[in-house]
């Protein structure tokens, strides 16, 4: 079948899609966007997290046919050309990337979190990222990266956290 949708704002068409294929497979193997990762294909690791109509979801659990006429956003769409999104920059700076296989999914999930909560508490960060497994970092530097990104975004907005976090 043919599936037509937008990826990172760009109209995209995939042909000869097998009906049982996932959005993840289509992105990785058919439209040249392998940034979203295939670590489990069972929804357990979050490495394949993409935006589907604005909500982060596991691309491995969306049937290709379900994205017809819908909008998908992937890790490849976070940066503005060579300018990294603050979340991406914070992951690099904080040492939150080792093998990096978990990174694309974590970036999308964190990007969503910081759009919804400007000053998330540690507990909120942990709950929001609890569907993104990382086997390398023990998450400490990921926590640092999220805090750093939140602080930098707040700076950019010219707002300080209201009340301290807990």
């Amino acid at each position: 079948m043919r599936v037509t949708f937008t990826v990172n704002g760009r109209p995209t068409e995939a042909d000869d899609v097998w009906e049982g294929e996932s959005l993840l497979y289509v992105l990785r193997e058919r439209v040249g966007l392998p940034g979203s990762k295939n670590a489990c294909e069972q929804g357990e690791c979050g490495s394949c997290t993409v935006y589907l109509d604005g909500a982060p979801v596991c691309a491995c659990l969306v049937a290709a046919g379900q994205v017809q006429d819908r909008a998908v956003g992937t890790v490849e769409g976070l940066a503005d050309g060579d300018t990294l999104d603050p979340v991406q920059q914070a992951f690099v700076d904080a040492g939150a990337v080792q093998c990096g296989f978990c990174t694309p999914g974590l970036l999308v999930q964190t990007h969503d979190l910081l759009n919804r909560a400007h000053h998330p508490s540690d507990a909120e960060i942990r709950e929001a990222l609890s569907g993104n497994l990382c086997r390398c970092t023990g998450y400490e530097k990921i926590m640092d990266a999220v805090r750093l990104a939140a602080a930098r975004k707040a700076d950019a907005r010219g707002t300080a956290p209201a009340g301290s976090e807990g």
Partner: peptide
Amino acid sequence: DGILKVKGDFAY
């Protein structure tokens, strides 16, 4: 390889 990795461009 950090920038490639956060951009999703690192070739696994």
